[in-house]
Computed example of a mutant assay.
Amino acid sequence: MPRKIFNEDHEQFRTAFRSFVEKEIVPYQEQWESDGIIDRELWLKAGENGFLVPMAKEKYGGLGITDHRFDVVMCEELARVNERGFMLGLHNMVVAPYLLSYGNDEQKQRLLSRCITGDAILAVGMTEPGAGSDLAGMRTHALEKDDHWLLNGSKIFISNGILSDIIVVAAKTNPDNPHAMGLFLVERGMDGFSRGEPLKKMGMKSQDTAELFFDNVKIPKANVLGDPGKGFEYMMEKLPVERLNLCIDAVASARTALDLTKEYIKERKAFGQSISKFQNSRFKMAEMKTEIDLGFAYLDRMIEQVNENSLSAADACGGKYWTSEMLCRVVDECLQLHGGYGFMDEYLISKMYRDVRISRIYAGTNEIMKTVIAKAMDL
């Protein structure tokens, strides 16, 4: 089904970014999987090519592009090759907007340029060992002093946890109000800030996911984003775009799985004919194509809404919930159509099966997504 949201500029950009992916990412994916982390050099190369934080204004070193569709293109192209370690969407669409929206001019001048060149990799610290989707239950806290804040606590499941240089960390700032939080910019090398070993995971092996620890970390007041009591509101404002980012990956990844499977079943033969000729194969492929087309329709409307600054929390949750469930169904069915070969590591569908299962959990579990939708329905 043709997609009308992209114009010639977007497609030209897609061609350029696809070339970058084929040259700088695809040849190294197997090694990064083995290493458990991607090469930091990739971030610098992305910066050189103008792929990092393109929405930042030119005076900070960005391109001043306010059209989210260029970020969408990059996310889709990474999904096309199932690249899970290079979290460009997290850097561009999830974390950088906190700086862009709530950072003051001094913070932007000091930090954004490094994020744009790739010298500084971004991460965000919300989830804790005892508080996942329930942000109000977090225990990390910050105590205000004369010219700084003292940050104590820990975060877990942090993407870019090892490579990150600037982490937006959420912490409670008023013990009497569970929703009074601040967002603090923790920088690599700050005294009292440490990282655990990369976490061993079922999938996404090249993503350096880690636990972060804060032991009386002295945060200068120049590293507080906006009002130190409004961090919860800031996160609620930005979460819809984070969930849009996951929707982009989910639908594009489902298409990748379908394309892989189409190629496989046309080549694989059983009982004297291509297995693509069996009714079961044809019906399953038709069902999955229809679901993916429906996903793109929902996704493209969300993209239009985010460009119009009208994407609601409930719509974003609906998109995240449905597309991630659809992705897992599609990848599971595609693996089944691969037969025994789908269980072999040498086939990409096997890796995708392990990688995509997290999509129903991170950035808020799908059960939380349904809770938000129900609340918006006044239930």
Rank of each mutant, 00 (worst) to 15 (best):
M1G: 10
M1I: 11
E8Q: 09
E8N: 04
D9P: 05
R14Y: 06
R18G: 06
I25D: 10
Q29S: 12
A46G: 14
G47Q: 13
K59F: 01
Y60L: 09
C75A: 15
C75D: 12
A79H: 08
A79W: 04
N82Y: 13
R84P: 10
F86N: 08
M87R: 02
V95F: 06
P97C: 08
L100G: 02
Y102V: 07
N104Q: 03
E106K: 11
E106V: 09
Q107G: 08
K108I: 00
C115N: 07
I116N: 03
A123Q: 12
G125L: 06
M126L: 14
G137M: 11
R139Y: 13
T140R: 15
L143E: 15
L143V: 15
K172Y: 15
P178G: 12
A180Y: 03
G182A: 06
G189H: 09
D191Y: 05
E197V: 04
G203Y: 07
M204R: 08
Q207N: 12
K218S: 13
I219V: 12
K221D: 02
K221I: 07
K221T: 08
F232N: 03
Y234E: 03
V241L: 06
E242S: 14
L246S: 13
I248L: 06
D249E: 15
A254Q: 05
R255S: 09
R255Q: 13
L260Y: 12
Y264Q: 02
K266W: 00
E267Q: 15
F271W: 08
F271A: 11
K284L: 01
K284W: 00
M288P: 00
M288Q: 05
K289F: 01
I292M: 07
Y298R: 12
D300V: 05
R301T: 11
V306P: 10
C317G: 04
G319M: 07
G319V: 04
W322H: 05
W322N: 07
E325S: 06
E325K: 11
M326A: 06
D332G: 03
Q336G: 10
Q336T: 13
Q336E: 12
L337G: 05
H338D: 01
H338A: 04
G339P: 14
G339R: 14
M344S: 10
E346S: 15
E346W: 10
Y347E: 13
I349T: 05
V356A: 09
S359I: 00
A363H: 11
A363E: 05
G364N: 11
G364T: 09
I368P: 01
M369T: 06
V372W: 01
I373Y: 03
D378R: 03
D378F: 01
L379F: 10
L379I: 11
